[in-house]
Write a protein that binds this DNA or RNA. Structure first.
Lengths: 225, 225
DNA sequence: ACTTCGCGTAAAAAAAGCGTAAAAATCCCT
DNA sequence: AGGGATTTTTACGCTTTTTTTACGCGAAGT
């Protein structure tokens, strides 16, 4: 199992340092120079750990973190130039899992990454099957079942249902679904959701009146019941 | 749920500081001055988190940690006087989950304890149900109940009731409600409130004269009773 | 006693939101 | 490069929600 570490920083030097050290430890490296790029990588490669440097050109690290935590629990280690206590506390409370202020040694960074993987990543279940009522899903093989019958889903359909199944019974907001499935640029295109849900319900035979599995909360989002 | 934090240190001053701060956060404090004492507590009280200062009179912290990890996975935060990198790395690799070198502020210690609890101890999902009298509401699923019966609410109705339920029994001003539910542009459209409350009372059967749950404070706002 | 103010209610009008179908564009294979 | 599957766009009917409007009532003030 190779773990993927995403590094978000705008200094190429830092990237070089970290990349070499990560490789030496057997980790895969994913580089991002901007938050936009980071969001791209997040959707495509699903990193196991994120190293986030503050003070990026295209946005504020704290709000990136807050937004990330709405959908992901990926461990985040924050790097910062200033050693300011208030900031430290705000970030940790917003969901950061560790914090390192410059200057730091690369050795310490690597050890802390390894601690995050040891404590938070490697204990996740190996069998990634998720169930809810008559629905079942396995991410690793991209399979989906309704009452034991396999149903073939498209990429978007799968991503949508995964969002709901990862939060069984909970309401997931439209904007969250749109951002996760279609990307930041389509957070307001709610008609995508309507078309997809309609299609999905046809596939799942989920039109038995008033007892739908995918429940619409008008104006807010969807949830499973 | 009260979390138990064990502090292992031989300086009484540190104990005092930490004990007071832990109490303020709602955590239970367990003090140990020696490793022998720590082992006692461990067996009897099963703490959720351990704060371990190095350089204790009766033994070496590293071997304590190594031994602990053979049987327990209780999160450990290590405190140390020296900021020596080799030691840091050795400890983290031996199973410590976080590390803080002196001098540190008590605030940072507390925040890091809270992070350990959040990330490693309290993995159970939180139930965000809020109750007041016969009313109950769960934000995460957007559900609402009156005397156990679910009542379906619209977006505005839900937002309005959430404002009142978040401040149980307290008076909430009209302008506050309007700003929160309808936005800054409608802070003076008090007729919105009247229409919505009327409709809401119908839904909640809240017209039993003079004993309404949603109480009007004429000219000021609303509150729950 | 009359006016004024704010509240509650009802009903109509407007807006927003949903589900569906089908066409157009795009993607992704071989 | 072709062709089927997928995604995006577009349009429309329909329901629900929100906003507007109107009116009656009672309390407080003049």
């Amino acid at each position: 199992m190779r773990y993927k570490v995403m590094v978000i920083d705008d200094e190429p030097q830092i990237h070089t340092f970290i990349r070499i050290s990560l490789a030496a430890e057997g980790f895969d490296y994913l580089g991002a120079g901007t938050l936009a790029e980071a969001n791209e990588h997040l959707a495509h490669f699903q990193p196991h750990v994120i190293i986030l440097d503050l003070g990026l050109p295209d946005g504020d690290g704290l709000s990136f973190l807050t937004q990330l935590r709405q959908t992901h629990k990926t461990p985040v280690l924050v790097l910062t130039a200033r050693d300011q206590e208030d900031e430290k506390i705000r970030l940790l409370e917003a969901g950061a899992n560790d914090y390192l202020s410059k200057p730091f040694t690369i050795r310490e960074l690597i050890v802390r990454i390894k601690v995050l993987i040891r404590d938070l990543v490697s204990l996740e279940p190996v069998d990634d099957r998720v169930c809810f009522g008559a629905l079942a899903m396995r991410t690793s093989t991209h399979q989906f079942w309704v009452s034991g019958e396999e149903v073939v889903l498209t990429k978007k359909e799968f991503a949508f249902l995964k969002m709901l199944l990862d939060r069984p019974g909970q309401l997931v907001e439209q904007s969250v679904l749109l951002r996760e499935v279609w990307g930041q640029t389509h957070v307001e295109d709610t008609h995508y959701l309507r078309v997809l849900v309609s299609q999905l319900r046809k596939k799942l035979n989920d039109n038995a009146d008033e007892q739908r599995v995918i429940k619409t909360e008008p104006g807010i989002g969807y949830r499973l019941v």
